[in-house]
Amino acid sequence: MSQNGRLAVRFLCLGFLLLLAPWAQAALSVVTTTTDLKSLVEAVGGNRVSVVSLAPAGSDAEDYAPRPQDLDRLRDARIIVRVGLDYDLWLDRMLRQTGNPALMRGGAGHVDSSYAIVLLEVKGAGLSDGGHSHGAGNPHYWLDPANAEIITGNIAEALVRLDPANAKHYEQRRIDFLTRLEQRIRLWQTQLAPLAGKPLLTYHNNWPYFARRFRLNFVGTIEPRSGVAPSPAALSVLIRRMRDEQVSFIVRHPQDPARDVDFLARKAGARVAILAASVGDLPQAKDYFSLFDTNVAALTAAYSESKP
């Protein structure tokens, strides 16, 4: 083959690669603040998206301290999906640093997945300067599986906006996901039906949405405020309540201090169930479905143990 021929072949190859390049690049790069949202974006996007969660599995996303590489991840991202409310405030400063207007609040690639969620425990004392609403509501809304309908709606809307070519794909996947989810919710509801209305206690207040879906009666929270240990007076009230109302088990999530929970369980003769509040908190909770599978299993196990 002549020199020219080889060159031509090379060019052809290069051209072919360039043609392929859009395919290779086609995966829409999405950054989420938590693993739960990552799981939901994957559920909607499938192989057309590549998702990274800033807060890694098992970390406390509420107090996450961003790392330098996170800025790179954000720079490459086309969409950022966040929990919103007061949960991932640390993201705002990072977004300002990257300075990409599309990712800023109101930009095409900014998804606040709390939009249109029915919020619980809205204590908000109105807007403060900067328009941020403090006490905007309990942020653990992904723990009501039915809320996935709204969350994935917000996600799918943004995916379709930035990648209209795959709109059908995203919408179909979302519907498939929701259909499967609906069946599972019914299953979980039957599994948890014996626990409905039974009093239980939690360490951190991350369960109101979960409680609402499955009719669980959380009579109290051990920590009075996030990160504050209970006072002796509060503990003695809790112990009395546990004895009076026959609270038979306490839930905590792996990051919560074991000491206080074990102390109360010891004093009142209750069981402790360790639940995952986010995907990846427990090794079994690998994605959004197994998150609930794990929790439902842990709750029913603790309940059957607690029965005399």
Partner: peptide
Amino acid sequence: IEKAPQGAEHLKQILTGSVLTVS
């Protein structure tokens, strides 16, 4: 802790005992 695979956050419990709940 940052590099730990998962759930290493509860290690901070080592430094945050509480005399009230001593067993």
